[in-house]
Structures are given as structure tokens and as C-alpha cells.
Nucleic acid binder design. Structure first.
Lengths: 138, 138
DNA sequence: CTAGTTCCTGTAGTAACTACAGGATCAAGC
DNA sequence: GCTTGATCCTGTAGTTACTACAGGAACTAG
């Protein structure tokens, strides 16, 4: 190893950030990560700055942001003139989306729970679940 | 119109079930609907039985079942010897999945709400949301 | 020097549709 | 009979965010 080197291979970057190698290459293709320098033989060489950006993207994804949003947020994080308002707008929009999905899932959970409870799970061939699915209660 | 005809075009089937035409053709390709009869010129002709099955599939999808599960359930609904236990197993598995996703979304909602509240949304260029995304609290 | 690991590019698969393009056919009105 | 607009046909490609190879090159440790 080079002393105090801050450069790393794609494998090291993957290990450092927890992002899988194929995903890193995918992000590069999508323009979410810049094209890294290469060794003489063509291997990618990353800097700590790349690692920081990738960690940022990863956190965005963990919070459920789309890659498009992650790109926007990373851009704002690196811009000097990014304002709170711009950042918050992205979060608010995503939060509304999450709350919408939450409401949908809650309805599903309720309906499925009711179905589950309606059915004895026996070897009867007349199943209340199939009845419910067959005759719509829209 | 033929008197008391129970046959219909793909457009009529789509209108009757609320499933879009392209989706109907897709289900046919995927084997979720049988290949319908055709007119001399090649147009699809559906029966009420097809409409019933498609409505069943639609209800499954509304409840969040995968197409694979929908296929299984539709098969059970048409089989004579299908038992409650078989049906319930599919529902229970899906319900567990839904509950898992619900838990994930609740965590997201909490984290995003905290971010939302932490940020004034002003034109300040020091945003607590970006700070949180930049320095991981893993 | 050799074996095992890492890396490379490029392509295809996943889920469940949706959206065309480009063309044929049908139904209704004049 | 003819035109016009609606409906239908096939086949292909795009969507999201990866993941999984195949087939080959290069690096590293013993």
C-alpha cells in the first residue's frame, strides 16, 4: 500500500460504503458518480471525495429517495448556493409520496387481515377468501 | 348486435373490468388469460367467463398480490379440490410481506418527518437536512 | 510461476405494465 | 359506394434500480 494514500479500488470503495460493485458501475453509467481515474491497465481509482458522495447517495436511497432525487440532493450538497428551501422541497415531496404509500398499505393490511381472519385454513373446499375475490365488493 | 350475446371485444372487456387493453393483451401473453377465440379478421372475442376471471385477477392486484400469486389464486378458484388451507397460505405470506413493507415505510416516514421539521426551508445555505445526509448517523 | 482473486466490458434479466409505430378493419353517415 | 374516425392488430421498446452473468485480462501471494 502507498503510505497515507487516499485512493482506492472499486472493491475498497464498495467495502467502505456498503454499496455493491455492480451498483457503483451502474451509478457511473447513470452519471451519479463521475468517471474515476484509471490505472494503466484500466482499473478504476477512486478518491475519498468519491467515497463521500457515494455514501451520501446511499443514505438518500436508504431514505427511499429515487435516484433522480438523490442526484438532485447530491448536486445541492455540492453547490455553494443551495438553499434550505430547495432541499426541503425535495424532502416534502418525497414525504407526501411516502405518506400516500403508507395509507395505501394500511388499507391493504386491513383488507388482508380481514380475509385472513375470515378463513379457517381448513381442508374445506368452500373458501371465504375466494368468495370475496370472486364477487367484488368494490 | 346478436341477441343475448355474451361475447365481447377487447374494448368491451376492458370497459367491463376496468383493466386497460394493453394489460389484457399482456396477461394473455403471460398466460394469465387463455387465448380467446378470434373473428375472421383476427380480432379477439371474449366470453363472460373471461370477464369473470379478469375481474378476479384485478381484485387480486388491487390487494397487492403479485401476478404469480394472482395466477395461483385464480387457479385455486377454478379448481374443484382447492382447500381453504392452500388459499390462506398465499394470503398469509402476502400479509407478512405487506406488514414488513409497512414497518419499513413507517421508519422512513419518521426519519423524513424529523428532517422536514429540522429545516426552516429558508434561503439559508446551511441546511440541516444536507448535514444529516452528509454525516451518516448509521 | 501458478493459482486464486479482483477487475474489465457488455448484455440480459427482474415486475408489471405502458407507450408507441405502422398498419388493417370496422361502423356510421352522406 | 366512399370516406372518416374509432377500434383493433403485431411487435418492440421504455420504465426503476439494480443484479447476474459471460468471457476475458490483470494483479497478488506463495
Amino acid at each position: 500500500m502507498c503510505p497515507t494514500s487516499s485512493e482506492m479500488s472499486i472493491g475498497a470503495l464498495s467495502a467502505a460504503t456498503g454499496v455493491n460493485i455492480e451498483t457503483i458501475r451502474y451509478y457511473e453509467r447513470e452519471g451519479l458518480l463521475r468517471q474515476p481515474a484509471r490505472t494503466a491497465s484500466g482499473r478504476r481509482v477512486y478518491t475519498v471525495e468519491d467515497a463521500r458522495r457515494l455514501a451520501f447517495l446511499r443514505r438518500c436511497r436508504e431514505l427511499g429517495f429515487s435516484l433522480a432525487d438523490a442526484r438532485t440532493l447530491a448536486g445541492l450538497a455540492e453547490a455553494d448556493a443551495a438553499t434550505c428551501a430547495e432541499v426541503k422541497a425535495v424532502v416534502v415531496k418525497h414525504l407526501a409520496d411516502v405518506r400516500g404509500k403508507l395509507a395505501d398499505l394500511k388499507r391493504l393490511e386491513k383488507a388482508l387481515t380481514a380475509m385472513d381472519r375470515s378463513c379457517p385454513g381448513s381442508d374445506s373446499t368452500d373458501c371465504p377468501i375466494l368468495d370475496a375475490l370472486t364477487s367484488a365488493a368494490d
